[in-house]
Design a protein around this nucleic acid. Sequence first.
DNA 1: TTAGCAAATGAAACGGGTTCCATGGCAATA
DNA 2: TATTGCCATGGAACCCGTTTCATTTGCTAA
Lengths: 315, 315
Amino acid sequence: MTTIRDIAEKSGYSISTISRALNHSGYVSATAQAKIEAIVKELNYVPNAIAQDLSTGSTHNIGVVLPDVNHPFYTQLIKGMLDAAFDSEYHVTFLPSAYDQELERHYLEQLRRKVYDGLIFTSRALALSELATYLQFGPVVVCEDPGSIKIPAVFSYRESAYQAAFAYLKKKGARHIAFTFSRPEPISATSKAVMRAYLKYYCVPADQRNIVAYVNTYQEGYDAAQQFVKDNVMIDYLFANSDDVATGARQYYLDHGLPVPGLVGQEYQVSSMLLNIPTIDHHLDVVGREAFRMVTAQHLATTRLAVQSDFILRQ
Amino acid sequence: MTTIRDIAEKSGYSISTISRALNHSGYVSATAQAKIEAIVKELNYVPNAIAQDLSTGSTHNIGVVLPDVNHPFYTQLIKGMLDAAFDSEYHVTFLPSAYDQELERHYLEQLRRKVYDGLIFTSRALALSELATYLQFGPVVVCEDPGSIKIPAVFSYRESAYQAAFAYLKKKGARHIAFTFSRPEPISATSKAVMRAYLKYYCVPADQRNIVAYVNTYQEGYDAAQQFVKDNVMIDYLFANSDDVATGARQYYLDHGLPVPGLVGQEYQVSSMLLNIPTIDHHLDVVGREAFRMVTAQHLATTRLAVQSDFILRQ
DNA sequence: TTAGCAAATGAAACGGGTTCCATGGCAATA
DNA sequence: TATTGCCATGGAACCCGTTTCATTTGCTAA
């Protein structure tokens, strides 16, 4: 490999001058600049990025911790981040965590170790307060409402969209609503928000049998419906955590000759267009883009940004 | 930041011994090991990864060049790669290219610059021969059949599945088939393979008006159908490049009260389950996984691996 | 002519590890 | 007792840039 010292030797200039010429930092004569550039071209020299990183102390690499790539939630976030990275000078590295605490700690340590210039947590198993202790080593941004914890955050504000959805259901005369969630209520802020909105319009908490958690895919939606039927849960509406889940459930009812409940989906997926069901767009691409911008911003104040979700009633 | 020299100073041992102790490279007494470990813990020391990278010359980072994150093709590939990366010591960085040649060259240069230990090209705008010239700087794996070009490759072998599909269509009595593609025929090997299989069963090349390219999403499928109708193209079957595209097209016909043609999708998406249409599974997660394994393999022979696609006839 | 100053250049330190090689101590073998 | 050889250890080179600071060169103004 050609190094900057090779260029120095061949050109007769010192490595300092070469470095200055390459980085256009000034204090290089036109003669020197031309000569150096010619030799760089001749030897087909490119600076070693690792050496530059060591010298400058930054890698231009942002780590994005995500539990699961399959879920539409993360697919959309990823898209937003990649878009933002595209016209920045940073790269994005995806770090699958599967909600493993040890693994998440490992990634945090990587921040200390300077593997990444910053970290984005799209979801997490660790406590927010633990994440916050790593802020001294570099920017850490989370994609959820951090409440009272002081940590930069970008997240979708779901309350009003959820309320709009339940107002709609109430108006439609829905009485027995079932729910599917990605993660059960105690852990997940999202499911809490849903139940809060539900409570506001229906005044009594939902029966636990009307709730199935760990549902993410079409197939799991299908299975959830099966469970409702098996448990003899009578419902006239299903409030699903994604459009694909909603359509999976629908299929179960169809396959078994049962009446299909009304459906409300989320995430604005193709399947909701197909079935023409209402859905909720959480604009996760925007959340991803802004989280990326925040983590790469020069001055990371303890900012937080809420992106408003939209309830989309088709036709 | 605590450095290895701090540990050396505090422990009374030399940095060589510290390094050996940390890496368990032997030649360290039990006494020294214990003392060093204690001090490492006390000072909460973690080695700087960039310095290690510079010293060892590798970053444990694999770059994955992809034109588009949205397309199911890449979504599935990504999933496979992340799965493989998960239990390896490597990270994955996604490099969006939008089929920009300059950008792709830039990424290749990053390989020379040691930003990545290896590159995977899921698709590309550059000539394979140009990619191959970078093999001297590190492993480069492509996700397509490279033909006579000597470059490591992992790709789906589609011929037999396509043939099965057209055999099925022929048997069903399909006469006028339309096609959608992600990229038009001259560029894309995939579309060439489709047309080859079609020709085998239908003996005459398809009418150009029956082909629409640059179709990837539900909406673009909808638009493609519109174009067929506008061009007065009569079809009894649509051979789409993804299930979502097929369902988008279907919707157009429905929306306009037109008879819906028979559909064949690809990529085994949720929408094909929903509509119960035949599809083709290209097992792109496997392709992604194997590509990742290949690029991180110790000895990168000029290997190639073909993963067989499956025609899936539902029910 | 010379002081004064800016521009151009280079030596060396620095970032923080890994690793080669030399050295010293000590036990087993001849 | 002298030799051999292994183990533990440290010094220093190495990876390859950036940056600080000192020095030299060249020009302008007095």
